[in-house]
């Protein structure tokens, strides 16, 4: 029994199990405390309300896993820039909404390329470079318009309100896209050579280079993916807001990083699991839902609770890593002894 626990704690999926358990506990707590909380629709609402954040978090997780201080602070600003560009394109041009959406995806890719270029070619710190592009995107958004621009295109509005029925409940188009993005991201990270390369680079850049992996190319790709996801998240965001504004997606990068960490991604790189990060987003969403069901608590409690959760998870990760290292040393000693006997 003890050995079972010891192995469970050391397994790479341990943080995922803990996050899952925490989500079930939180959701269970809500269901017990409030009438009407336990319904499939409340659960699906978590996806509907957090679709942009889920998409953005999937992207940012790639950059964090790639290690070397990898992080993308520009995502929130890219979300804002795509919303504003969409609103502007649909107001001042007669382009089809579908073409507009296609075009704004390239904004994300371009920002990703800029980030990746500065980080890989000039070997600059990802933190500073993406901080720079964050300022750049916020400024560019304000250059398009300082005031909020509403999206009044009818076709686009219909698209935003598209919903799919599942039994008695419904799910929005944004949520469906978020789920698809999560599935693709999971498969890419776990089962393709590129995904394994990302883990390898994050785990140990030197070894990855010696193995013959093209480290710089993988790094560049990671930032392009993050930028692309941010733009896609921006489109999903515009479906909720139906407007473009300079303050859209403010602080989203920190929410995404927090979700990622709660979901078991280590900021040192090399460790991370996309479904876990989705659970991270859902946990934050559940806290918000509980607070809104409760009615008297103020919104700032969300921040405090998320902070406390972050703290718990980070300390847990530190302890787990220590335990794993101890176990590895024990195993190494064991095999050493066996080798001597033979």
């Amino acid at each position: 029994m003890r050995k079972f626990f010891s192995n469970l704690v050391a397994s790479p999926m341990f943080s995922f199990y803990v996050t899952g358990l925490l989500f079930i506990i939180l959701f269970g707590f809500g269901s017990v405390s409030f009438e009407g909380f336990f319904s499939p629709q409340v659960f699906l609402n978590l996806f509907i309300d957090n679709a942009p954040l889920i998409i953005v978090t999937a992207g940012i997780t790639f950059t964090i896993i790639s290690g070397g201080g990898g992080i993308d602070l520009s995502v929130g600003a890219v979300v804002s820039l795509t919303c504003m560009s969409l609103a502007y394109l649909m107001r001042d041009t007669s382009l089809s909404p579908y073409l507009c959406m296609f075009l704004v995806l390239f904004i994300g890719i371009a920002i990703g390329l800029i980030n990746g270029f500065f980080i890989t070619f000039f070997k600059l710190q990802p933190f500073i470079v993406t901080l720079g592009t964050m300022f750049l995107c916020r400024g560019l958004t304000a250059m398009i318009s300082r005031d909020s621009v509403a999206i009044s295109n009818e076709e686009y509005g219909n698209l935003a309100f598209t919903s799919f029925e599942i039994g008695d409940c419904f799910i929005s188009l944004g949520a469906v896209i978020a789920i698809i993005v999560v599935i693709i991201a999971t498969i890419v990270l776990r089962y393709t050579s590129f995904g394994r390369g990302v883990y390898a680079v994050g785990g140990n850049e030197q070894s990855a280079r010696l193995m013959g992996l093209r480290v710089d190319r993988i790094r560049l790709m990671v930032y392009v993916i993050s930028g692309f996801c941010a733009a896609l998240g921006g489109i999903a965001y515009s479906w909720i807001m139906l407007s473009g504004y300079t303050l859209h997606g403010l602080g989203m990068e920190m929410d995404a990083i927090a979700s990622s960490v709660i979901g078991g991604t280590q900021l040192m790189g090399g460790v991370g699991f996309i479904p876990g990060t989705v659970l991270g987003v859902m946990i934050q969403g559940t806290i918000l839902t509980i607070i809104s069901f409760q009615g008297t608590l103020s919104a700032w409690w969300t921040k405090i609770v998320v902070g406390v959760l972050l703290c718990l998870f980070i300390v847990m990760q530190a302890l787990v890593t220590e335990h794993r290292n101890k176990l590895m040393n024990l195993k190494a000693e064991d095999s050493g002894k066996k080798g001597k006997k033979a």
């Binding site: 500065f118 070619f121 000039f122 070997k123 600059l124 500073i128 470079v129 901080l131 720079g132 592009t133 964050m134 300022f135 750049l136 916020r138 400024g139 560019l140 304000a142 250059m143 300082r146 300079t246």
Partner: peptide
């Protein structure tokens, strides 16, 4: 330049300066 557009210019100046400071450059 208005306060909300300022970040764009700030970003360009910053990226320029850190690039010039980099070893590669």
């Amino acid at each position: 330049v208005s306060s909300d557009r300022l970040p764009a210019i700030k970003a360009i100046v910053i990226l320029l300066i850190i690039t010039i400071q980099s070893e590669r450059f």
